[in-house]
Nucleic acid binder design. Structure first.
Length: 668
DNA sequence: ATAGGGTTAG
């Protein structure tokens, strides 16, 4: 911002100079004036001044004008200057070719190259580099690679600059074989000592999915600068090598390499993209303690981490920070805030943020519609969906996933079916796996299990684990052993390591008192060496996120937590609020019945919340698995007995408990 | 007095 202001002041000085200086600008003065010119109108003014003084044809002035117009993106004006140049040198041709390449006009650029040759001027390495670089930067990576291949075919050996931008283009189109050839050339030509080349190689291999080569290139070169760090972290993140990225990042830090906001943003994003939310939160704090201020990219990168662990206080402070910095107008920041507030249980705040985003995009709309879906507010989701279309914003694949799942959460079976059809017939979007999964959930919830099974059989592609998992879940609710066995058989094949499926099937057998089945599934699990998935919950108390997991007694307050739970259990049975054993929905954790202390993590989290906050404070808990019926009943009791609003976000949706009732209407 | 390069994002 400041820089721009300075430039404007500078331009004003130049204009002032042009208007008031009594002697005419000369051929020596104009090129330096043009060099410092940063706006098209000023360039045109200088051009006019040159023309009036008869200097426009001077080779230096003309060349400066040409380069200035190219630099400012005024390609046509540059062309006019160029065509009038009496002696068209390789410099002029190169500039013009670079200009058209940077606009993505590959055809024009190639045409100029031909014209140049017929005029008897041969392109040099700089001409070629300009062509490759321009095409790459304009997003025509494929054209850039083509240009590079042709350059090589014509006997021009790319230098470090050429190789760098060619590698960047290769990464964008994932032409790893071309990349490898370039790598070979780099080794032969000896330019692998060039830092930019090393960085570009790391970037290219990262984008082409070759994590092994990233480390290889990095360890072979001994360069440790900001750029190589950024490329490394991004490359490793893309390839899910999060531990490697964290290790190398800390190495850069301890070596005293001066890392910038991009480096810190990259490592935060790396953690978020690879499921390390708490590490991301930690690194975000560390970044600030090192004096690096987050920018408008950092904020949307870190917000999903806050959202995932429901760190509302952190999210709120990111919101305030964005407000102070003027980031709220940024659609990325806005959409990420909408998502964060919705996932932290504050769907009203999410709406407020959403309404204030000046130019909303599909992601913004999806965030708010998905937010309403998560909270079971189907009417609002549908209303926003209609508004979206009124605002001429095209719904995409994600939008329909949100709308159909909203209908499913609220039991609007026919509406859901309607949107599923409309998606195909009115919007020309063919349903993908996730849409079928939503439909199976929707039909399953309504008890239309046979219809759900028919839909699965009609799918034009092989159903995945989510689809069968959804059917199995509905079978648990409606006690359909036959379809449960069909779904489970597929699931054991598709995702043999997913313990939740075994537990679910075992629970279905148990609910029907089919003990043979129960034992068979348990043996199967034991034989495969599978352990029950550990449930864990998070609760934010006074700006700190606490993680509690079932069977883990490492939390410092564990004695008090257990005491509180014991007391609640006593009160519960005293008041006749005994959980029905028949209503153990979605118990994917399966506690050992005889182990009284093995309590589901959400209960531990709520107990911690109860003893650490003042009476009446709402509690928000998030859980990595679905909430079980037992805990669901307990939460209803606690909300009533303790007079607290409790919200539990499980993998599926939000449950808002208040006065002994849940917003899901006991269906989930 | 006139030409060229790498890294981050829902």
């Amino acid at each position: 911002m400041l820089k721009k202001k300075k430039m404007c002041q500078h331009s004003n000085t130049l204009l002032h100079f042009l208007r008031h200086v009594s002697f005419p600008p000369d051929a020596h003065l104009l090129p330096s004036a043009l060099k410092s010119c940063h706006a098209q109108p000023l360039a045109r003014a200088l051009h006019a001044a040159a023309a009036v003084s008869g200097l426009a044809e001077d080779p230096f002035v003309a060349s400066s004008l040409l380069h200035t117009y190219i630099r400012l993106g005024a390609t046509s004006a540059a062309r006019v200057v160029f065509e009038r140049m009496p002696d068209k040198s390789v410099v002029g041709w190169s500039a013009l070719i670079a200009g058209y390449s940077a606009r993505g006009d590959a055809e024009v650029a190639w045409g100029l190259l031909e014209r140049m040759r017929s005029a008897g001027v041969e392109p040099n390495v700089i001409t070629w580099n300009g062509l490759v670089s321009g095409l790459n930067r304009s997003g025509s990576a494929l054209d850039a690679v083509k240009a590079l291949v042709r350059m090589h075919g014509e006997g021009f050996l790319p230098d470090a600059t050429g190789v760098s931008c060619a590698l960047s283009a290769v990464g964008d189109v994932k032409e790893v074989s071309v990349g490898e050839q370039l790598h070979g050339y780099v080794v032969k030509a000896g330019c692998r000592l060039d830092q930019h080349v090393v960085t570009a190689l790391i970037d290219m291999y990262g984008k082409c999915g070759r994590a092994d080569e990233i480390s290889h290139v990095f360890y072979e070169s001994s360069h440790m600068d900001v750029a190589s760090c950024n490329a490394l972290v991004a490359g490793l993140s893309r390839n899910a090598q999060v531990s490697e990225a964290l290790l190398l990042f800390s190495e850069f830090v301890s070596r005293g390499v001066e890392l910038n906001v991009v480096s810190w943003t990259s490592i935060v994003a790396c953690c978020v993209q690879n499921g390390k939310d708490l590490e991301a939160v930690d690194l975000f704090r560390k970044m600030q303690s090192k004096g690096i201020e987050p920018n408008s990219v950092t904020i949307p990168c870190v917000l999903p981490a806050f959202a995932n662990v429901a760190a509302l206080m952190h999210g709120r402070s990111a919101h305030c920070f964005s407000l102070r910095k003027g980031f709220l107008h940024d659609v990325y920041v806005g959409s990420a805030l909408v998502d964060m507030y919705a996932k932290c249980g504050k769907v009203r705040y999410a709406r407020t943020i959403f309404d204030a985003i000046p130019s909303k995009n599909t992601v913004s709309w999806n965030a708010i519609i998905g937010g309403y879906a998560m909270h079971g507010e189907a009417a609002n989701a549908v209303q926003l969906f209609c508004l979206m279309q009124k605002c001429k914003q095209k719904p995409d694949l994600v939008t329909f996933t949100c709308v159909i799942s909203a209908c499913g959460q609220a039991g609007l079976t026919e509406e859901g079916r309607h949107y599923f059809n409309e998606m195909q017939h009115s919007h020309g979007i063919s349903p993908r796996m996730e849409h079928y999964a939503c439909m199976v959930t929707l039909l399953g919830r309504a008890g239309k299990l046979d219809e759900a099974y028919d839909l699965i059989n009609e799918m034009p592609f092989e159903p995945d684990g989510c689809i069968w998992g959804s059917l199995l879940g509905s079978c648990r609710v409606y006690g359909n052993v036959f379809l449960a066995e069909v779904a489970a058989e597929k699931l054991f094949e598709l995702e043999p390591e997913n313990t939740g499926n075994y537990v679910l099937l075992s629970n279905i057998y148990a609910s029907k008192k089919m003990w043979d089945g129960v034992n068979r599934v348990r043996d199967q699990m034991k034989n495969m060496g599978l352990k029950k998935e550990k449930g864990c919950s998070w609760i934010e108390i006074k700006n700190k996120v606490h993680m509690l997991s079932a069977g883990d007694s490492s939390h410092p307050m564990m004695t008090a937590i257990t005491e509180k739970l014991k007391q609640l259990t006593i009160e519960m049975s005293r008041l006749g609020f005994a959980p029905s054993t028949d209503f153990v929905l979605h118990d994917v954790e399966e506690q050992e019945k005889d182990d009284i202390l093995a309590v589901h993590s959400e209960k531990l989290a709520v107990a911690l919340g109860l003893i650490s906050t003042s009476p009446g404070t709402p509690l928000r808990v998030i859980k990595n698995l679905r909430i079980c019926g037992d805990c669901h009943e307990a939460m209803k009791f606690i909300s009533c007995f303790e007079g607290r609003e409790i919200s539990v976000r499980d993998t599926n949706r939000f449950h808002h408990f208040k006065d002994g009732k849940c917003s899901c209407g006991d269906y989930w």
